[in-house]
């Protein structure tokens, strides 16, 4: 596969390490009253869609960026590649 890195352009997927569901960005609030249950869901529950999937890839043999790649798990078509840091900020993550 080829991943179109937002900063570096097209790169072979062999330069990357795969992590999984981009929902991992949405780490729950540790101070919430439901924190234990929220973290249980965060750590263990994942969707496994046959189709479009947002997932985390790390450009390990490259610039060390974490990327959010929107990929179709049936066809391997990639429709969008974003810097994970930008996605995290969009989701309200800060310091």
């Amino acid at each position: 596969m080829i991943i179109n890195h937002p900063l570096l352009g097209q790169r072979d997927s062999s330069e990357f390490t795969y992590l999984g569901d981009a929902k991992l960005i949405e780490r729950p609030d540790p101070d919430s009253e439901t924190a234990t249950h929220d973290f249980y869901k965060y750590a263990y529950l994942r969707d496994n869609p046959a189709g479009w999937h947002k997932e985390l890839w790390f450009h390990e043999a490259g610039d060390r960026s974490w990327l959010v790649v929107t990929r179709n798990t049936l066809t391997h078509e990639i429709s969008k590649v974003e810097m994970a840091r930008d996605v995290a900020r969009e989701k309200g993550r800060r310091r």
Partner: peptide, 19 residues
């Protein structure tokens, strides 16, 4: 060495992007 570095970058970029 490698997985921990990867994890640290994940925490930095994906969880606390403004640190």
């Amino acid at each position: 060495a490698l997985p921990v570095y990867r994890h640290m970058e994940f925490v930095r970029q994906c969880l606390f992007p403004d640190m």
